[in-house]
Amino acid sequence: MFAAAVLSILVALVLVVFRALKGPTLFDRVLAGNSIGTLAILLLAAVGFLTGRPEWLDIGITYGLLNLISTLAILKFFRHGDLAHDGEEKTP
């Protein structure tokens, strides 16, 4: 059961890495990076249950937060060209 889950996560990882490398636009890569973070959390959970240590689920929460931070940083940089931007749009 968990072995099947791990296998399917690995297949999904291969597909997403292919998209991250090939991705015509930057947003494909950003989305692929975010998906790989999610898949890493899933892999963590599935391997944890597979090896009989479901306590690893707590670490998945931290991974989720980190994934959010890096994706937000990339998108903010792409939108404003600056990480220290206050986020308000300038009206021309």
Binding site: A32, A40, L43, V47, W56, I59, I74
Partner: peptide
């Protein structure tokens, strides 16, 4: 930059499989 982030997440997964959960946590953060 995006690919380097992906590399880190994959490396963290490798470390988890190797039973080094604390190192994986450091690698991811």
């Amino acid at each position: 930059v995006v690919l380097a982030g992906i590399y880190s997440f994959l490396m963290a997964s490798v470390l988890i499989v190797l039973d080094a959960v604390d190192v994986a946590m450091t690698e991811a953060s």
